[in-house]
Nucleic acid binder design. Structure first.
Lengths: 245, 245
DNA sequence: ACAAAAGTGTTCCTAATACACCCATGA
DNA sequence: TCATGGGTGTATTAGGAACACTTTTGT
């Protein structure tokens, strides 16, 4: 049945029979803090799931794209401008019983933000809320709705995506050391990587540009790199780097 | 803003301000016919886009999952039971202007069906419609809405997926020759493959089981294979074979 | 016997892995 | 001078790509 047929059909019946679902955008925000991959959750004040932790999100307005809704909600919770965020649509969850009150279809996104750009205490229009960054490897048990499933899936997607894209760079400041980058990979994949092989691999991608600056610390200074934009002769097929769709 | 906050907020205002979008499921159905990858389009009778070709699809009912809606629409158009179809969520398209009449968010799916299971003349509840299978490499110019973009994206996804899953087997009958399988890959990827390398690769996956039967034709008979279910020691990481999410 | 599709191995090259030591600096 | 993290190379292995001939059958 095409859309047009359906519209035709619709006009012949009582509108209430064609009740529409609510549509929300929920965002799994990832950032690296303390060498660990964290995600943002908000404590719910009202039932259902009062006292449980939920993903940031909200209704999609009639005149905005879904991605824009996600970006807007994200900015409200983290203070990070949408232009400074990597935002990718994850999956649409639409089980009729996922919200006990009414039919809510949610389009889930995952976002990667640089932790230094987060403004620590941002308040929504309902005032201060309890908001926390949780290690993805140590999430609370009381997560609202199907949000645990959404987080798990986004983590899986992020891990996969690390293997064939440079998406990890979205979590680092503009200049970083190779050790920073390796720590990031290790935090996400939750496993140790070999230093020489890791360097060989990321350098062979040709997407990193060495600067002439060094990060000084207690010990030997480390060369800082930057992300090189517009690299054409990658070892990867170009399609893999595309942002969906 | 959390869902709960938003609900709270909602109660204070006129409901019309919180108009809800319509949600549809559209399906890109793929099948192999005449050694070519085809997709199903339906000619629209009414404006907008009267006379244009559109994807099968329709509204998601309040009490059904989105996937079920997609399966239902698919069955109406092809006569193939949902249990006999590979159905995977593709992406959700929500540009406010994608349908000129009203806000319609569509959750796009792609489906793989075995052509022999298709019932050639199925009619929807509006009567006989003009329905055609188009080669994906030769689509009409007049495609309605953003459906061309949806088809292109699903083709890209299918191509990618062929590389790391056994999803192509969903397009073949239960017993098939290696040449059948290779023709299928060539039709989808739109390129010729080396016979020896192809056989080496698919056999090394360990997902094919030789039968003792042969497909007879004009020339030398070809050994028939079947898909071997529940293969554990694959060369691929298990996550890759998972159906999302 | 011949036309046509089925079936089969080897070489080469690239990429992934495993693995251990010297270097530069600040304290 | 020493503790610490920064930085480097080589050998092995596995998988992908290029490439041509023999086998089996029906006509």
């Amino acid at each position: 049945m095409t859309l047009a047929d359906e519209m035709e059909f619709l006009r012949k019946y009582d509108a209430s029979q064609f009740e529409r679902p609510s549509v929300t955008a929920d965002i799994v925000v990832f950032t690296i803090m303390d060498n660990d991959l964290k995600t943002l959750l908000i404590k719910r004040g009202q039932p259902p799931f009062a006292g449980y932790w939920a993903l940031p999100g909200g209704f999609v307005k009639m005149d905005e794209t879904i991605e824009r809704a996600a970006g807007r909600e994200l900015e409200e919770e983290t203070g990070v401008e949408p232009s400074e965020v990597y935002l990718e649509q994850l999956y649409t969850f639409g089980d009729p019983k996922r919200d006990p009150r009414t039919r809510v279809i949610t389009v889930a996104y995952f976002a990667l933000v640089v932790s230094s750009k987060i403004q620590p205490f941002v308040t929504g229009r309902e005032g201060i809320k309890e908001v926390r960054w949780f290690s993805v490897h140590n999430l609370p048990d009381n997560i609202a709705f199907d949000h645990r499933k959404i987080i798990d899936y986004s983590l899986r997607r992020l891990k996969n995506k690390l293997e064939y894209t440079a998406v990890g760079l979205e979590l680092l400041p503009s200049a970083f050391t190779l050790t920073d980058l390796q720590n990031l990979y290790e935090a996400i994949l939750n496993e140790k990587l070999d230093k020489r092989n890791f360097r060989k691999k990321v350098l062979s991608m040709g997407i990193l540009q060495p600067t002439r600056r060094y990060k000084k610390g207690v010990h030997r200074p480390a060369l800082l790199y930057m992300f090189k934009r517009a690299k054409s002769t990658s070892t990867f097929k170009s399609v893999k780097f595309e942002r969906e769709p």
